[in-house]
Amino acid sequence: MKVAVLGCGGLGRIHASIYAGMQDVELTGVCDIQQDLADDAARMTGAVAYSSFEEMLEKAEFDVISIALPSYLHKEYTMHAAKAGKHVISEKPIALNLEDAEQMIRCCEENGVRLFVGHVVRFFPDYVNMKQSLDEGKLGRACVAHASRIGGHPGATKAWYNEVEQSGGVMVDLMIHDLDFLRWSLGEVKTVYGLNRREELLDYALVTLQFESGAVANVEANWGFPGQFQTKSEIAGSEGIVMANSLKSSSLQIHKAPSASETSAFVTVPESPGFQSPYELELLHFIDCIRTGSESIVTARDAYKALELALAAIESARTGRAIYLPLVQR
C-alpha cells in the first residue's frame, strides 16, 4: 500500500516516520507549503518532497493520504483527496463545524474511499485499559467519571492555534480527545454543560456530560498550564473505580545535572516508553482497516459525534444554558 503525508509539522512528521518504518507500506510523498518542512520530512523518510498538494497528487502514486494540516484545512483537503479516489486519514478534529464534518463523510462515501480521524486516545494503552476494566464488569455500572488534559498553549509556537476560527479552541482541539473517550466508554450523551475562559495564551474549560445511562462526567482542559503536559482520568462505578494518571505512570525518568550553559538547577524528563507508540498502533489499525475493509475502532461518525460534544460545550459556555443533544447549529 502506498501512502502520502500532507502537512509536515509535528504530527505530520510523526505520521511520515511511522509509515516509513511500516512493513508492506511505502511512503511515496510528503508535502508541505513550507518547502523546508517537506524537505526535512523527505530526508528523514526517503520519500519525495512536494510543496503543493496538486503536484503531489499529479506526480506521486498513493492510495492513502494522511492529513496533518491545521484543523481549518481538514475539510478542503479531505474532499480534494476523496474526489481523487484516495482514502483519507485526517488528524482530529474532523472539522470545525458539523456541516463540514457531514460533507466530508458524505464525500468520502460517494467517492468510495474510507475516512479515518486520528482520535489517538483510543490507542493509548492506559485509556484502553480503563475501558477494558469497565467492559469486563469490574466497575459495575459506570456512575461518575473525570478526565483532564492540561499543558502549555500551542499558540505560543504556532499562531493558527490562537485563532478560534482556525483551531476551534481548547474544547474542539484538545478536550475532544476525552469527549470521544468518554462517549466510547460511557455511551451516548444527553446533555452538555460548559464553562470556558479564554485570554491571550490561555484557554481553560470545564465541561460536564450527562449520559443517556444516567452517568455523569466532568472534563477539564487547559491550554496555558505552566508545567509538563499531563492527563488524568477516572471512572467510578457501582462495583469499582479505575484511575489513570500520566504523571504517575512514567516508567522512565532521566535526571540530568545542568550543563554549564543552563541556568536551571536540574533537568528531569519523565517518559512512558513503549515498543509501539499510540500513533503507530492507530495508523497500523487504519491501514489494516483499509486492507481488510473492516470497521474501525473509531469511525468518522464517532469523530462527528465528538465534535458535536465539543461544539455543544462551546454553545453552553456561550449561552450559559445546558445543551440537550442533538446540537442544532446556529
Binding site: C143, V144, H146, Y193, L206, T208, V216, N218, A236
Partner: peptide
C-alpha cells in the same frame, strides 16, 4: 456534580459523590 458562577466571573465545579 455541582457548578457555580461567582459574581466576580470565576466559575467552579465540584464532585460531591459518595463514590469511594
Amino acid at each position: 456534580m455541582i457548578h457555580v458562577k461567582f459574581a466576580s466571573g470565576v466559575f467552579g465545579v465540584l464532585d460531591t459523590s459518595w463514590s469511594r
